[in-house]
């Protein structure tokens, strides 16, 4: 078994005093790719927001350990500097802030040292050509007037520069057509490496055909109800989630 990167124990999370996560347990090892699947409203995005430390998602009980350290009370920027990266489902636009300057600030912040413009240009150019992103892109304002596909590619470019230890990809496939999805997933595959862990949060099978997980977890009504290997993806795709509900009911009746 590989080194533990993320360990979540009995995590309860409320949003505006409504409990969404009702005791989540999860373990992610170094270098592993996990998929977290579940129907709408099951708590998938809540989990990623809570891990990252969104102030609206209040942790009422339980712990989140990252490389052995409880990170529950850390601010999002502290967590980022530890190497945790969240690719947003709905990336925010920040008008007037150019991508170039944003990315440079991000790089300096997460890597804890000032980076010269020349040095940054070099790294950026490298990553952009790796991901097939045009140079003109970085002159635009951050996510301002971007299409869904552009926003998602921008998230992945950030991920490439960020070099996370733990990447949370929150419904990166949503709003993308087949072509765009393929491009984004190919980029993700180029970034993923044995030194980092990845959680892919998705509703559907299609993204997981490109970025293949070793472990799959199904979350329903705030709890992880089933964990397994890649075969679970096929079952969900052909049978949906309802059978799990039945199973869960049967289990709880025992």
């Amino acid at each position: 078994m590989s080194e533990d990167f993320l360990v979540i124990e009995d995590l309860h999370v409320s949003v505006e005093s409504k409990e969404i996560l009702k005791g989540v347990n999860l373990r992610i090892g170094k270098g592993e790719v996990h998929a977290l699947m579940g129907p709408n409203g099951s708590g998938k995005s809540t989990l990623s927001n809570a891990i990252m430390g969104h102030p609206k998602y209040r942790i009422t009980q339980g712990s989140i350990y990252f490389k052995g350290e409880n990170i529950v009370d850390m601010t999002p920027d502290e967590k980022a500097r530890k190497g945790i990266f969240l690719a947003f489902q709905y990336p925010l636009s920040i008008p007037g802030v150019r991508i170039f300057s944003f990315l440079k600030n991000m790089m300096s912040a997460v890597h804890g040292k000032e980076i010269s413009v020349a040095e940054f240009r070099k790294v950026l150019k490298e990553k952009m050509s790796l991901l097939g992103i045009k140079q003109s892109f970085i002159k635009r304002y951050l996510n301002d007037g971007f299409s869904g596909g552009e926003k998602k590619r921008n998230e992945i470019l950030q991920m490439a520069l960020f070099e996370p230890k733990l990447a949370l990809l929150d419904e990166t496939d949503s709003g993308l057509d087949v072509t765009a999805l393929k491009v984004v997933c190919e980029s993700i595959n180029k970034i993923i490496n044995p030194e980092m862990s990845t959680i892919i949060i998705t509703h559907y099978k299609r993204m997981l055909e490109y970025v293949r997980p070793q472990f799959v977890h199904i979350i329903m009504d705030g709890r992880i109800v089933k964990s397994g290997g890649e075969e679970l993806v096929e079952i969900i795709d052909s049978q949906g989630y309802d059978w799990l509900k039945q199973e869960a009911l049967a289990t709880s009746a025992l």
């Binding site: 999002p76 920027d77 980022a80 920040i94 802030v97 944003f102």
Partner: peptide
């Protein structure tokens, strides 16, 4: 939250906005 998740402190994030 978006900017802070990229490692910017609260002040740095606000200044950027």
């Amino acid at each position: 939250f978006y900017l802070m998740s990229r490692g910017l402190t609260e002040v740095a994030a606000k200044t950027m906005i």
